[in-house]
Nucleic acid binder design. Sequence first.
RNA 1: UGGGGCGUCGCCAAGCGGUUAAGGCAACGGGUUUUGAUCCCGUCAUCGGAGGUUCGAUCCCUCCCGCCCCAGCCA
Length: 554
Amino acid sequence: MTDLDKPTNFIQQIISADLDAGRVNNVITRFPPEPNGYLHIGHAKSICLNFGLAAQYNGKCNLRFDDTNPEKEDQAFVDAITADVKWLGFDWEGDACYASNYFDQLYTWAQYLIGENKAYVCELNAEEMREYRGTLTETGTNSPYRERSAEESLSLLEKMRDGKVDEGAMTLRAKIDMASANINLRDPVLYRIKKMAHQRTGDKWNIYPSYDFAHGQEDAIEGVSHSICTLEFAANRPLYDWFTANLPLPSVPKQYEFGRLNLNYTVMSKRKLKLLVDDNHVAGWDDPRMPTISGLRRRGVSAQAIRNFCDSLAVAKTDGIVDVAQFEHFIRDDLNVNAHRAMCVLKPLLLRLSNLEEGSCELFSAANHPNREELGSRHLNFSNKLFIDRADFSEDTTLSRKKFKRLVIGDYVRLRGAYIVRADEVIKDSTGNIVEVVGSIVPNTVGADAPEGIRPRGVIHWVDSATAVECTINLYDRLFKEAAPDEGNKNFLEHINPASLIRITGCKAESSLSDAAVGHHYQFEREGYFTRDSIEKDALVFNCTIGLRDNWKA
RNA sequence: UGGGGCGUCGCCAAGCGGUUAAGGCAACGGGUUUUGAUCCCGUCAUCGGAGGUUCGAUCCCUCCCGCCCCAGCCA
């Protein structure tokens, strides 16, 4: 399917219509995270959408931090978010934008609204304000401070700004309609007092603008043409438009809402992710089990896979839950094409080849990719003592060839990229554990078909014992056992999968893996995709990104 | 409950009054294969319900049912 045939989503349809009608000449979008946590896969959808649209229409997309609440925000989050967006492969013109860059302008506009008799300083406390607001079915009641003079509000606002009023004692509110069916229009708060330093403006302000009073105006300042947000903000749109209609803004942006991404077997709210981190259920925001961008990166998911997945997602107004299998498909799809192959034995079992001399050594060449010759090859050492995986050997000679395509005593198997071997006998310790399998190679079978009469049951991977490097492997499973861990009033913490991380030490990797670089993706043949851990750099630790598909029924 | 939004295959979805109702994921069957991987082939829906408008409706109207969002000085 070409781009032209690809169905366009409703936002593309709106943009194209705006362009055609001349309502918009320059497409400008923005990705507006609040720096109060790390970005997750849901944000990636929004990032790909906003930056993608800008690219498609030759416009631009701003990275803009919505830093209007110093209580929850932190410079560390700004840094992490910036790094994640870049890693995903997106860039923006000039510096990132910040809501805090516009605090002076926002304050001036607040004064303007007061002067227009469209805003007032209210002295109702939080509880009173809630009572005056009414309910879903009952209209609200006007604040007793609603009709105070503009002069008084102006001077009170100044006092709020200067720190002369206690937190919670006053707010600046828009004067709209306490009887509106849309609760967002019942005199919403524009400014609240927070006597708190801001990570960027320091202690300059004692009051901070609310989301509603800031967001649309930020868009207007930046000339954003299409302000795309998620569904839950739809009820805020009339308020967004109210500011646009009542303030002397440099441009008139429009808000559009689309359905955010939800995935099963995980949680996707920053509040819940933060709880997992703060309560040490995971090792941090970048724990490989987290759906965060940094967690996925550390897990070994490529930026390309994330982008492909996001591009496969519908931009619509339905809020569904995407099956993680769909995400996993794109992870494997990318890794299958790009990951170099290597061999690593997770649960080593010694295989001694009796018809090779002790200390013998051969060197084989193995392709780094089965169908991409341009990816080159590497050398594989082969001696008379190898490691194979314990799961690839069985003493049970009654196992059918179809059911067990691995090594069985008395039968043959192909060692990937090397000889066909036969298992002859097992050596056990005093407790009956198999400590060694003794076998023999079939001569002249390297890179050659099996000779007449010999039918290997299958192909297994192996590592030369003399040159193997020991490593540790982290195997991951989904973080939650339940498909919808936070559905209804479930306590999602109760559904954490206790086996979401299995750490295996004493694994044996082929020697070429000894200097594996962080950020490189490997397929350990017959096992899965792996990448070197970015935190435990000093040791040889690999994280399993995802296993290979296995369609066979055990 | 007032307001806003949404209901097409197990999941995500295209469809914009006339289509054999796309596609992807999953699943299932088969072929290739020195990874039980990849790859290849094939199978898999009458559109939440009931009325109505129309020659003709998944698409328009009405009513009903279901789900989501809004009563933070969060975003």
